[in-house]
């Protein structure tokens, strides 16, 4: 008997706390059922429900409208100017073509294009940060020769020069080309440091994109 009273009481409290979202229809099905059942038996909660409806109505008051154009213009002035109308895919493709134009690199074009398309797809799908990225890059192989590896990086538009410099120094990287039309830079990194550098670059919050480019050894 006592146990049953306690149960009823805790059910009452649970339902009472859920009533605002019950009135709004934002509970899940099981909760909705729980409240429905309890309301049949509890006059207090039914009274509470009436009050909830009043609250909901009272909160529907309209506020004066604001000028979105003016507000956006104010914010726009604070954001860095950067016309970026070209879709990412085209930017990456152009970048790939530019990088791969020397004759000796031409055989790699197809392979590289596949990697770049894969990257673009991963970006569009929003799976860049974790698994997809790891997966994509493992498919590319490392250079056999001791000449520097090349890596494409893009920084967030807000990255300062000082920050960029710090990141480059920390990664043992030199800029060898860029900024490209796509606002990316090509870094040269000693092959034996490539893995560590790529990992480090990917850990930087102001680095948007890290793409090792060497595919020579794959041939």
């Amino acid at each position: 008997m006592t146990a049953r009273v306690v149960n009823l009481d805790s059910a009452h409290r649970e339902v009472r706390d859920l009533l605002p979202w019950f009135v709004m229809g934002t509970l899940d099905e099981a909760e909705q059922r729980l409240v429905d059942e309890h309301l049949k038996a509890c006059a207090a909660c039914r009274g509470e429900l009436e009050w909830e409806r009043q609250l909901r109505e009272a909160n529907r008051v309209a506020l004066p409208e604001r000028d979105v154009d003016r507000a956006f213009a104010a914010l726009r002035a604070r954001l860095p100017a950067q016309p970026r109308e070209v879709p990412l895919f085209e930017r990456l493709r152009d970048l790939g073509e530019r990088l791969l134009s020397p004759a000796w690199m031409r055989p790699m074009l197809a392979l590289q294009a596949v990697a770049i398309v894969g990257l673009a797809v991963a970006l569009w799908a929003g799976r860049m940060p974790a698994a997809a990225q790891e997966h994509t890059y493992r498919a590319l192989s490392r250079p056999a020769a001791a000449e520097p590896a090349r890596v494409v990086v893009a920084f967030t538009p807000q990255t300062s020069l000082g920050e960029m410099r710090r990141i480059l120094l920390a990664s043992d990287a030199r800029i060898v080309d860029g900024p490209t039309a796509a606002d990316a830079y090509i870094l040269a990194i000693a092959p034996e440091r490539l893995d560590a550098a790529v990992q480090r670059l990917r850990g930087e919050s102001s680095v948007l994109l890290v793409q090792p480019l060497e595919a020579k050894a794959a041939q």
Partner: peptide, 12 residues
């Protein structure tokens, strides 16, 4: 909490 519940119609 009131605004999110009653106007923005957010669940808890």
């Amino acid at each position: 909490v009131i605004e999110l519940t009653y106007f923005q119609e957010a669940g808890y």
